[in-house]
Design a binder for these strands. Structure first.
Lengths: 191, 191
DNA sequence: TTATAATACTAATATGATTAGTTTACGACG
DNA sequence: CGTCGTAAACTAATCATATTAGTATTATAA
């Protein structure tokens, strides 16, 4: 069935992720990846659908990896503890794999349904964490959007160097999480 | 002093912004911009320092425009009203000028001091809005980072199509702002 | 009217994406 | 052990873009 082993797909994705982590997403070129894999660039067309296909594959891979990390983070935790820890894990992922994270949050085209699916899994994971707060369904969904906005915004601004002032970043992150949790409690008690 | 009029810099920036708004930042190429301006691409080197210089110029232009909008938004407003309105204005800017906004939040290189400066102006604007809350200096700075994370995260995720569910986006935005303001009050009363 | 200086141009080179067509190598099967 | 099929890799060629070098142009100022 497989006349020739060829390039391992996982190795391809990891190499692409390394390129992204080192030089940003725009450093992920077919030429660079081919060089890294010891192959000529046209050969990559046997494995990915051109450059845009490579980027799409990296988006999916990044989102899946992020989802796994978040799953591990909430395992055995609940309530405020889980909420806090999943945020810290999210930001840690973005810090440790800046290029892969950048890829993960690229605008997705409507045909990337698998990527959509993983995105939905992340939403569901966050919804599960929020169950103790007994929110209505739309409230819970607004809360998930808020949570994602916070985590992504922080990660993105941090990576872009927009937090330039001499002020501890982890302090800011913890402050932010506290604001969110306090606001959520307040929201809860207002009903 | 000016032997030949040549290309108007504002027109150049506006054309580049249009390209970005229509096709994303990666559609801002020297070739496309030259075509739009009715000129050959090497001619652009008289006005910008190559493609990366063009992107840097667009970053600055975007940040300046965003700052102006935020200034207008807070004029004649104060307290919670100002806070809410500046968030809405921020998100509105990102929606109305997606490409220019994308450019504005590009990672900035250390040599772009003018861009740094405008970023600092935005931070100062937000600090002024927060004065009624009587926060300590580090708290105020953490709060600004939180606010920026919220607004940028929401704008960025919205644009990337990550908020796919059938749930009103403005409702989410207003919910998010309320969570933030409630959390901030809570923070305040805990001291 | 002419000199100057900024601007725009053409030509050429380099890098990367992509396609077409060819060759190679591994595994299955007689 | 040989050969056959298939997927993978290759070379060659084309296209688009960025960039540099060098030349021509043109508006203003003297």
């Amino acid at each position: 069935m497989s006349p020739r082993p060829g390039i391992d797909r996982l190795q391809l994705l990891q190499s692409a992720a390394e390129l992204a982590d080192q030089g940003g997403l725009h450093a992920v070129t077919l030429a660079a990846l081919a060089g890294k894999l010891g192959v000529r660039s046209p050969s990559l067309y046997n494995h990915v659908d051109g450059l845009s296909g490579l980027h799409a594959a990296l988006t999916l891979h990044g989102l899946q990896t992020l989802h796994e990390q978040m799953l591990k983070a909430v395992a055995g935790r609940s309530g405020e503890d889980a909420l806090r820890f999943v945020c810290l894990t999210y930001v840690d992922f973005a810090r440790s794999h800046p290029g892969l994270y950048e890829a993960a949050l690229q605008p997705l085209r409507p045909d990337q349904q698998e990527t959509q699916r993983v995105g939905n899994q992340i939403v569901e994971l966050l919804l599960r964490i929020l169950t103790p707060y007994q929110l209505s369904e739309p409230e819970a969904l607004h809360t998930v959007r808020t949570l994602r906005s916070l985590c992504h915004g922080f990660s993105s601004l941090e990576r872009s160097g927009q937090f330039a002032l001499d002020l501890d970043l982890d302090d800011s992150l913890n402050f932010m999480i506290r604001i969110f949790i306090d606001g959520l409690h307040q929201q809860n008690s207002q009903r």
